[in-house]
Design a protein around this nucleic acid. Structure first.
Lengths: 223, 223
DNA sequence: CTTCGTTCCGTGCACTGTACGGAAAACCGT
DNA sequence: ACGGTTTTCCGTACAGTGCACGGAACGAAG
């Protein structure tokens, strides 16, 4: 009795080789490995041992895949739960940065497309409600949230491009020196302590974040 | 006497049809008209009424063109001269935003590549010296500058993607409503005053900017 | 077994960036 | 005026892209 209920799996009456999930997972892996430039539908299909056009049963276009992959990795950010607004936001944003470092292609994509996926809006709500609880509302609330996410995005974007310029296959030290000298020549000693010098991005990140948070704090109602 | 000194132009003994400048100008125009996705070397060459491969006498790759076009439009930002640090920065950043609105492809490109062109570093120096004069230095100075440029980039990027989603050929109002409702459903009334509702980006921009500047102000030495 | 909807995918098309090598033109020394 | 060199121009070609189309293979239902 092979078709007995005990041997069937009614959760998935159809069991296609491909699924949207499998595609998205593979897309994230491919983007991690090759970057946006190295990403192609053919390479994605190859990774899944499938024909290229099979993918199009599950997604409408390459753009779709980008949107899905983006929301997928945004899902890796676990929403912070409770705590004072400031610590909560620091935790949340630190995690965001970690995710974007793990998936360096994220800032490039977020710059082009609106983030409307379920995970994105869920994370966004964390910011809104944290700051609303703290006492913000209206346009100020929107400005605060926007500023915070702009900050993470911008910071990690420049962090990534810095590693990219330095991590080029050859000439690790040579290029590093070249760029540093280039900047030194033109910006002068003002940027002496720029990331360029030491790559201490962790400290810089928290420093800038504190700055923004201080700005937000001035907008909070007294108490 | 056609070769008389009065009819010659000794400034340019060689006078090629193409020049790097002409290419860059055309590239900016093409990017303005078609966006990053619609930009191609063939289209660029066509705009210059030249063969595609002629371009490669003057630039090494498409990436080069992007870098040059980027620095070109950054040059449109006229460096603010004097004045109290805060007004100066507001002026400078407002101008940056205007330029990025005029050339909506800028945020997408800055997210990927380091800004090392002459105009970019010149503008960057304006920020550094303004804040240095105000009393910042070291890592705090770097953090402040980074935060400010992240803010403009991020703000305009989301501003642009918003216009893109809404300005889609068909269904101006329909899509607008769809997205608004989508966000309303998930983020709830917290974002009621989001850009989504009214598109009053100017006010929002200044609001967020003030927030960041307040944060910076807390780092200034007393006096 | 037939029918029908789903899944898979080979082929083809228009288009991309750019390597290569040759034609044409502009310059220079005689 | 003429040969040689260098600079400018670009046609062709190649490997790659996203995806439209239409057919094959398969599973479930009648």
């Amino acid at each position: 009795m092979p078709e007995s209920i005990w041997f069937r799996d009614d959760d998935r009456p159809r069991r296609p080789r491909l699924t949207r999930e499998r595609i998205v997972t593979a897309a994230v892996a491919l983007l991690d490995a090759e970057g946006v430039a190295g990403f192609s539908m053919r390479a994605l299909a190859a990774r899944l041992r499938a024909g290229t056009m099979s993918l199009y049963e599950y997604i409408r276009s390459k753009e779709d895949v980008f949107d899905l992959a983006l929301d997928e990795v945004i899902g890796e950010i676990e929403p912070a739960e409770a705590g004072p607004w400031r610590e909560l936001l620091v935790r949340q944003l630190t995690q965001s940065r970690q995710v974007m470092r793990r998936h360096p292609w994220v800032p490039a994509l977020t710059a082009t497309r609106p983030l409307l996926g379920p995970n994105a809006v869920a994370r966004s709500r964390v910011f809104y409600s944290a700051l609303a609880d703290a006492g913000l509302s209206g346009a100020t609330l929107v400005a605060a949230v926007g500023t915070l996410s702009s900050y993470v995005n911008g910071f990690v974007a420049s962090e990534n491009t810095w590693w990219d310029t330095v991590r080029t296959p050859e000439a690790d030290a040579e290029i590093r020196g070249k760029v540093t000298r280039h900047l030194d020549d033109h910006v002068g000693e003002l940027a002496r302590h720029a990331q360029v010098d030491d790559g201490d991005f962790d400290a810089q990140f928290l420093l800038g974040l504190d700055l923004v948070l201080d700005g937000i704090a001035t907008r909070l109602p007294p108490g």
